[in-house]
Design a protein around this nucleic acid. Structure first.
Lengths: 354, 354
DNA sequence: GATAAAGTGGAAAGCGCTTTCCCATCTGTG
DNA sequence: CACAGATGGGAAAGCGCTTTCCACTTTATC
């Protein structure tokens, strides 16, 4: 139904080949007057190139696929924003898929497999896997991706992967968690509980391992390690469980150092704070909390959340960079910084740049 | 490079047509034994249909374009999540574009035009415009969209639009804002200031108009109306300006009703709360704050933010529904509910479901 | 048992582009 | 002034699929 190149060519009185050369960046560019005529015709007819047809003819689509867990989660949306930015710069379009919703057929199996297959079907030039699932769990996914790479596709994952030839953006989850916990230990805290998040995400695992490592270095062990979903509700529930198990109540023994809850991410930490408040406990006096990520909307939270700041958008940009540049270094590393605020480790209020 | 249908057909010893009929939902389906053979070959060779080629042949792409302002903004990411969900259900892929980043050529002109043109080029079956820009401002955009619709594309916008035949999800911004302000007035507040957000977004304008309408109904006028970007920082700055202009200081005159800041959205309200705290003022005793949207991460905020809860994901689902169903009603309406929490109108703490 | 009605696989014509050749025209040189 | 070398436009062959016809079996009908 839309106007096509043939019509433009006819309208301008030139051949299809010439019209194509004028309208789409070709090595050869026709004479100025001809070009002008073609351009005028295109404009007049409202011609818009059919990217699908171009993709078929050029065998490259200009598409990059981004698969996240939940686009509504600030962690992923920040990354998506970074990806978006790079994609725009290189005139690529991004295809987005989330893995947190069941498929149309009810099978919640591997949502990432479904997303990746769709992307491969659309012949995206690259696929960015921002969900931190263990790929080993899904041999089918691995096979699809390997074949995709063999066929010229580029794959970027966040964190380690078992896919050979995939490019990876390494995030300092382990080291960051260790640093954060170390900073807290340095402030004199000794009693910790860990909200470990979901088992199957390796970001969660790495962070928990980092926390443990720091504690172990001080010959400490967490008083509790409670798993749960990476959501505010997950943090809330896990915290309630913690508080109950450890019998933390209002009138805390002043002699003891307050319990410090280390959450595997900020969203859980947020839920944890709500749980603590709901028990009538004070932060940081009775219980302290630390998170991970430093998501933007929480920077305005009060009390300020101690956390490990990850440059999320930058991670997105890096991933997109690896995805878009055919001969980029196959590896990028990202580290963050410890942010001590009132919720833990920091006894007094300290303003830290809006 | 990837295996194509021709190879599968040859491998299975059937014609191209037959292979196509077996592998992709065709009206005619070949005999069981043949089908099985084809499927086996496809599996063995790792065949993945080329969606681009299919799009070309079928002249429908299975793509839906979503243009948001900033995917990292919880408002948009929640909507995107809803869209995603519906798209998945009907096996569509979503192409995402943001309009908050300058184009690659430095021209920040109309990012939406660029996004829409790209989508049209990719022949998306539908385009969802979730940015709340006034389309009238951009006649080129309007022209492109009209042509797109004429060519069989579907366009969905959030809020009113001047594009004929576009489908629209009407959001109760005006009424919601009025209700919210009315509820606050009913609690006895009389002194208001409005953080009006960016002029060019009509969601902001409608909300402000709603606030004003409620005030006017009580013969009141806002003490100040300060514009600014829809960001936490924007809310912070606007609030500081407000506080300074109105000379609100710590030792407030107890006789007067506290100032209530009505922010055009939650993110700004968040910044406002930070600004208020930074001035050493208490919420809600000295200054009160209300927002709009009820974004999820803020539900755990303390003090709880009074706001107007919009079913963001539902809005996304509705928009996607209108976009995907060729003969859906061209109009959907969404309303929300007033949420009074501690930050304004609600003098005492009331827990409201996690 | 002849004939009409179904059913089934295949050939081929696109879908809208890009790009390789090819040919015609033009420029500069001996 | 004839010829090699540029230069520039056009014809046509794909890119990987869908789908319309067509030809050919089968099956059903009287």
């Amino acid at each position: 139904m839309p106007v096509n190149l043939t019509e433009v060519a006819r309208h301008a009185g030139v051949s299809l080949a010439t019209a194509s050369r004028v309208l789409n960046g070709s090595a050869r560019s026709p004479a100025p007057d001809i070009s002008e005529r073609v351009r005028a015709s295109a404009e007049e007819l409202g011609y818009v190139a059919n990217a699908q047809a171009q993709a078929l003819a050029r065998s490259t689509t200009g598409l990059v696929g981004l698969v996240v867990h939940d686009i509504a989660d600030p962690y992923f949306s920040a990354i998506a924003h970074g990806v978006q930015e790079m994609a725009l710069q290189s005139r690529r379009q991004v295809l987005l898929a989330g893995t947190d919703l069941g498929g149309e057929d009810g099978t919640p199996r591997s949502a990432e497999l479904a997303a990746v297959k769709a992307f491969i079907s659309y012949r995206t030039d690259a696929i960015i896997l921002a969900t931190s699932r263990f790929l080993e769990e899904d041999p089918l996914l691995a096979k699809s991706l390997e074949r995709y790479i063999k066929n010229g596709g580029r794959v970027v994952t966040l964190g380690t992967t078992s896919i050979p030839d995939a490019r990876v953006v390494t995030i300092g989850n382990f080291d960051g968690a260790r640093e954060l916990a170390a900073a807290l230990l340095a402030r004199g805290l000794t009693r910790f509980a860990i909200l470990s998040g979901p088992h199957e995400r390796n970001t969660a695992r790495s962070r928990v391992a980092g926390f443990m490592s720091a504690l172990a270095a001080s010959s400490l062990e967490p008083l509790a390690v409670v798993p749960g979903p990476f959501t505010s509700r997950g943090g809330f529930d896990a915290t309630i469980e913690c508080l109950d198990t450890l019998k933390i109540t209002s009138g805390q023994d002043e002699a003891e150092s307050p319990l410090c809850i280390l959450a595997a991410n900020d969203v859980m930490a947020l839920g944890a704070m709500t749980a603590i408040r709901s028990r009538g406990l004070r932060i940081p006096d009775d219980v302290q909390v630390a998170g991970f990520d430093d998501i933007p909307t929480l920077r305005d939270h009060s009390p300020g959340l101690s956390t490990y700041r990850l440059p999320l958008e930058e991670i997105g940009r890096l991933a997109a960079g690896l995805a878009l540049d055919p001969d980029a270094q196959p590896l990028a590393t990202v580290t963050g910084t410890v942010m001590l605020r009132e919720s833990a480790g920091q006894p007094t209020f300290v303003a830290d740049g809006a």
